[in-house]
Design a protein around this nucleic acid. Structure first.
Lengths: 251, 251
DNA sequence: CGAATCGTTGATTCAACTCAACGCGAGTGG
DNA sequence: CCACTCGCGTTGAGTTGAATCAACGATTCG
């Protein structure tokens, strides 16, 4: 998993984890890695459904997920909610606001989550002091944007079955890429209502769709975890082409 | 419109236009503006529906729109097309690929369009040599990502009427912010089929929806241009809250 | 044990899609 | 200059995928 370009860096403080993550995108010099390790940060725990940031607030820090799941959401007229992103351990949650004066959406814990927070200013300074870091961070934010685009396509042009399968594929691959297990067993700590909010569907229809995917032996479910029975079938029904995730592998 | 922090910069070469655009986000030092003006670039013209970049290709340059309209699109299984972005004069078209090895969507001219192209590498170097520029470019790409998020919400959680109104509002405000006229008369050079592809609707339904918006006296249409009759009504029916565009004004 | 949340299922409705036809204006070529 | 085509907008009729409404079972947790 780790890029291994630094030897004795197995102490796993939050900041070295961040360095590891960035190094998966671009090689990062030792000096830059040391600079990252030295950045002041704070570790925090958020309870399920608590807010990390609200629409309109001034984002003050960048947040890196150490454990748990976090999602980002906007509310449309009439109270309908749309989830626009789901984050797992190893993701940055807040890069999208790094240079913006006001948050344009809400960030909320999905499960209990522990995070490391760095002052935005400090991170920006670091990005320009060490272009290695700057490139990696910028790239992270671009890949996130690529995921947003794919969600537009998913919601705009695929039916409920494909849409649901696509999300499962994406989360499975991202989970695997983050070193949290392989793509065949997906930890999916979302209620069906939340899944619906991520997919632009109602919880009722998510339920029917998941059951159909299960009946068709593409997946198996127990509680909040999903086992992929037939990866290539799921990929096909989800019209899933992982290029947009910009990960090396191409299984 | 212009930030006016440089006096004799009215010669309007493509590169000074880029400098002007960036300066609307953050103050840019004179040295940085001079550096921008000196970057080698190429001016090109693209005919309607010609491709600037295809899914899977290696993006080699950043593209700035001088005139005309450009859109970006992905194709889903079965050939359905989803437009994920529409660009007008003064927009960067390619920042989303700046650091990525492969394009994950297609970029296509909507109308005949003239653009200035800069080598990606050169732009990245400039960004890190002059943090002013880096911040402004990065911010541009973050704002674009904010637009993607809003599109997810728009398509996922709003009905055809609101969805269409929302797109009209967005384009009108962006057009105004780009100094291309005011928000009451919108140059909308898209066919109803293309509008449908941007909205996740069929062209038939776009037609009915636009006519209804017209019958309700929110807009007026002639050929490919739209006049906003009732801005606050349109804004309301579109559930449009321009914060996500991260523009100063708040009319 | 009781309350609350979440998942499941059926019956019905509705927004948007599909299919199909036709009008219109802008070319284009004989 | 007319006839023709072609793309685009428009409209109607019928269909359908997903929403809505409603009820009930299962699971968790204090």
């Amino acid at each position: 998993m780790h890029s291994g370009n630094v030897m004795a860096r197995d102490d796993h403080t939050p900041m070295t984890l961040i360095g590891d993550r960035l190094a998966t995108r671009f090689p990062i010099s030792d000096a830059a890695l040391d600079a990252i390790a030295a950045v002041p940060h704070e570790t925090k725990v958020f309870e399920p459904s608590s807010y990390l940031l609200r629409n309109g607030e001034r984002p003050a820090h960048a947040t890196f997920v150490l454990s748990g799941h976090i999602y980002r959401q906007k509310i449309a007229a009439g109270g309908a909610r749309q989830i626009v992103a789901v984050h797992m351990a190893g993701d940055f949650v807040d890069l999208q606001h790094l240079m913006l004066a006001h948050a344009d959406h809400n960030i909320q814990a999905l499960t209990r989550a522990t995070v490391a927070q760095i002052a935005s200013d400090a991170l920006v300074e670091l990005a320009f002091a060490h272009p290695d870091i700057g490139r990696a961070l910028w790239t992270e934010s671009l890949i996130e944007a690529a995921i947003f685009r794919e969600w537009v396509v998913n919601i705009g042009r695929r039916d409920a079955r494909a849409r649901t399968a696509h999300l499962l594929c994406e989360l499975a691959v991202r989970q695997e890429a983050a070193g949290l297990g392989d793509r065949s067993s997906l930890d999916l700590p979302m209620s069906q209502e939340q899944l619906g909010d991520a997919l632009g569907l109602t919880s009722v229809h998510v339920n029917r769709t998941l059951r159909k995917l299960e009946r068709d032996e593409l997946i198996e479910r127990s509680k909040r975890s999903v086992t992929v029975r037939d990866w290539s079938g799921l990929k096909r029904t989800g019209d899933f082409h992982p290029r947009y995730l910009h990960i090396e592998d191409t299984k």
